[in-house]
Each structure stands twice: as C-alpha cells, then as structure tokens.
Amino acid sequence: MRKPMKFHVINTGGTLGMVGKPLVPAASAEELLEGIKVPKGVKLNLQDMDEKQDSTNVWNADRLVMGQMIEAAYETHDAFIVLHGTDSLAETCSYLSMLFKLSLQKPVFVIGAQMTKIEAGSDVAMQIENALRVAKSFVKNSIVGVYNVCIGEVLHGARVCKRRDSAFDAFHTPGVHPVAHAFPHIMIKEGVRRKDEVTAVQGLRLDSKFERHVVSLVVSADAPPYVLMDMVKAGRIRGVVLECKGAGNIPDRPWETEGDDAFSWIDAIRAATDAGIHVGIVSPFEDGRVILDRYGLGAKAKAAGALSLESMTPPMADTKFRQAIAMFPKDPARIQRFLSADMLNELLDGFEDESDEDDDEVVKD
C-alpha cells in the first residue's frame, strides 16, 4: 500500500482568513481548511505563524520565519502550502525563491484569495483545493520549486506579479506562460523544474542574508532628484532601485532648488555610488530588459555607477538586489555578475544581438 503524501500548510494571514469590518487577519489554519476537499492519499499538517499579518505589513524578517518553518518540516513532508495575503505575495515568492535557490527540491506553493472564506462566492476553497491538487501532481512527477496557483493557473514563483486588485485572476508572470493548469485536470507544461537527486541529497540550504536598507523610487523628468540626494546625505540607505524609462533611461536635465547647486538624476546616482550606495535600474514593462548601453541616457547612468537589474520583475529585482548587496557590499562588479546570472529562470529567455554597424566591412572575393 502506497504511503500517503504529507503536505505542510502554513497560515500567515491575508484576506482569505480575515473577519470584521474593517477586515483584519483572524482565522486559524484549521478554520481555513475546515470543509476543504483534500485529495485522496494526502495528509495535512497545519501550522499558524505566531502573528498573522495583512500582507502589506509583511517584512522580509517574516518571510525568513516562513522559510525556517519550511526548513523545520522539510525532511518529513513532501510539499508545502503557504496561505498568504495577495498584496505582497509576489515579494514572498521572490524571497523564498532566492532564500532556497536550487537547494529546494520539493514544491512550495504560496497562495492567496481575493475574498474571505466566509463571504458568499468566495474563491478561498477553490484556491486551496487547486493548490492541493497541483501539489499532489507535482510530488508525483518530481517537480520542485516555488509556485503560485491562481484560479487554476500555476505560475512560476520567480516571475509572479500581482496585476489586479479585485478580479480573481489577480496574478500573472510577465513574459512567461503558466507552467501548468488545473482546470479540470492537471496539465503540466514547459517551465517547471524537475528534482535533481544529486542536489536533493545535499539537503535544503537557506541563503538568509538580505540587505534591509534598500528603497525603490520611480524616476521621471519631473521627479525631483533631491529625493535621492537627501537620502545619500542622510547616509542610512545601502541600495536604491530606480524604475526607469525605456531600456534603462534616466533623465539628465538639471534641477535647480533654492540653496543648492543644480543637479540631475545622473548626478544623484553618481553621488550615491561615490558614497558606497548601490543603484539598480529596473524596467516597469512586462517584456522590459534594462540594457544601459542602448541609449545615451542609460549609458550616462551606467557611467555614474548604476547597475542593470536585467529583465527581472520589480518584486524579484528588489529581492535579488538586496541579497546581492548583502553578499558583496563593496563589490559592484560582483553584484552585477550576480544580478545577471539566471539562477531560477527569473530572467526572460533570449538576448539582444549587438548591432553589426561597427563590424568590419565584408570584403568581396
């Protein structure tokens, strides 16, 4: 007789377990799983975080606790389901992906819902039941890694982003198709990661160093660069992520402010990097790739010391940048190499061929 699969369910809070008006996290994992149809041959172990949070309030320190809870149950369970709020679910998927990297040789699903369980028409039961169904299939087929299940679509955790506030299909993976579907049968597609026995036998590893003092800013020609310059002068941050235009363009028109010399965003980047603050450039577009050498304004940002966050989604760019800074705090070149390494398919496929305009002229026979 086949042994039952064991799934560890961690309840962190979020809308699916909220009650009251205004809504606040309250329901336990046991209450959330009450009435849920569990697949045959699956046994559940339920665990609540000590303090359940609205996911807007979740810190990376909380995400580390989630990872440690997975680590504690890792050897005795086959899969893990993290019940989570939707607002920062993408950040948690990114964090767990980078926390475990390839050492994670079992499937982890981070799921949320747009309604509470007690509301009529709620999506909670479908989300949890689909996650359990997919988890059983992934264990059976030796599929590992971090994933999100959203209304029957299984999404790669290293690229998942929230795109809608109210619709049930709240999540997608920009530039990447779902890796599986759960309607009505489980259909596994390209993009999943298979278990590697050599890696699996070495056990789970947690790379838990992430720089806390990192901030993100949206840059435009009308956004005052003194916001960054003031942060540099305060000396509290260790990194800043700038959301760019185009393929990495940062405006260079100087701002004049009372009592200060005129300076631009490029000047602010240079001041930051001169002070040992790392500056990463991220694209806001679904198919965005930061190629700082393409346009003059991107080249100026690069010359000022800015680093490319490549084609990562904003949640993954923030997470991976924090880890890179923590690992190599005084080595920008090493940070760039780390950011440019595609570890978990967090980067888009393909590359841009360089222009051949400067190639030597072909000599005719």
Rank of each mutant, 00 (worst) to 15 (best):
P4V: 09
F7S: 00
H8S: 10
N11H: 05
L16M: 15
L23V: 12
V24P: 03
A27I: 01
K43I: 10
Q47E: 15
Q47K: 13
Q47M: 10
D54Y: 01
V65C: 08
A73F: 02
T76Q: 14
D78K: 02
A90W: 02
Y95T: 04
I111G: 01
G112S: 10
A113V: 01
Q114V: 02
K117R: 11
E119K: 11
A120N: 10
G121K: 09
V134T: 11
K140T: 14
V144K: 07
Y147S: 04
D165I: 13
V176D: 09
V179A: 08
V179K: 06
H181F: 15
F183I: 14
P184I: 02
E190M: 11
R193M: 12
T199N: 11
L206N: 09
L206G: 10
D207I: 12
S220C: 07
A221T: 14
P225M: 08
D230M: 10
M231L: 14
R236E: 13
I250A: 04
P254D: 12
E256T: 15
E258Y: 12
R270P: 00
D274M: 07
I277L: 01
G298V: 05
A301I: 00
A303Y: 07
A304H: 04
F321S: 09
R322T: 03
R334E: 15
N345S: 13
